[in-house]
Amino acid sequence: MTADLTTATDPLAPPPRRRNRARWIAVAVVVVAAAVLAVLLRVAGSGGPSRPPTLENQLSDRIVAIMEQATPTDHHQHGHGSIGEVKGQVLCAAKTLGFEPAGAKTVAEVRIVYGYHLCAVVEPGRAWDFAQKLSGPMSVQLTEPPVVKVAEGGEGFQDRVREIIPPPYQEAALQELLDEDQMRDLRERFDKAFSKV
Rank of each mutant, 00 (worst) to 15 (best):
H80Y: 11
R23G: 15
D74C: 07
V29E: 04
G45K: 03
G79R: 03
E68V: 04
L59Y: 01
G84H: 07
H80K: 05
V90S: 09
V30F: 07
F99Y: 15
G98Y: 03
P49Q: 10
V32I: 12
V27F: 13
A35F: 09
V32S: 03
H80A: 14
K95T: 14
G84T: 08
W24R: 15
L37Y: 03
T54A: 10
Q69H: 13
N57Y: 08
L55G: 00
L59D: 03
R21G: 10
L41A: 14
A34D: 02
V86S: 05
V31P: 06
V86H: 00
A38R: 07
V30E: 07
R23P: 05
P101S: 02
E85H: 13
V39W: 09
V32D: 00
L37R: 03
D61C: 07
D61P: 01
V43S: 04
V86K: 10
L55R: 01
L55P: 00
G88D: 02
G47I: 11
T96H: 06
S82R: 13
G88H: 00
D74A: 01
T73N: 07
G79T: 05
E56A: 15
A94R: 01
S50P: 07
I25V: 15
P72D: 01
T96E: 05
V90Q: 06
A94K: 00
G79C: 02
I66T: 09
E100A: 15
E85M: 14
G84E: 03
L97M: 12
P72F: 02
V39D: 09
I66R: 06
F99W: 15
V43K: 04
I25P: 09
D74Y: 01
H76T: 14
S60K: 04
A28H: 03
I63S: 12
E68N: 08
T73Q: 13
A70F: 04
H76L: 15
V86C: 04
L40W: 14
A44W: 08
G98L: 04
A94G: 03
K87T: 14
V30T: 12
E68R: 02
V36M: 08
V31Q: 01
D74K: 10
S50R: 15
S50D: 11
A94F: 02
A33K: 09
R42W: 11
V86A: 08
T54S: 15
V32F: 06
Q89V: 11
G98F: 02
A33L: 14
P52C: 01
A26H: 06
L91A: 09
G45W: 03
L37M: 10
V31E: 04
V31G: 04
S60N: 01
A65I: 07
P72R: 07
S82L: 14
L97I: 11
S60W: 00
R51V: 15
Q89L: 13
Q58T: 02
L91S: 03
R42N: 10
C92M: 00
G98T: 00
L59I: 05
D61H: 05
A33W: 08
A65M: 10
L41C: 12
H80E: 13
H80M: 11
H75A: 12
I66Q: 01
S50M: 14
H78A: 07
T54N: 01
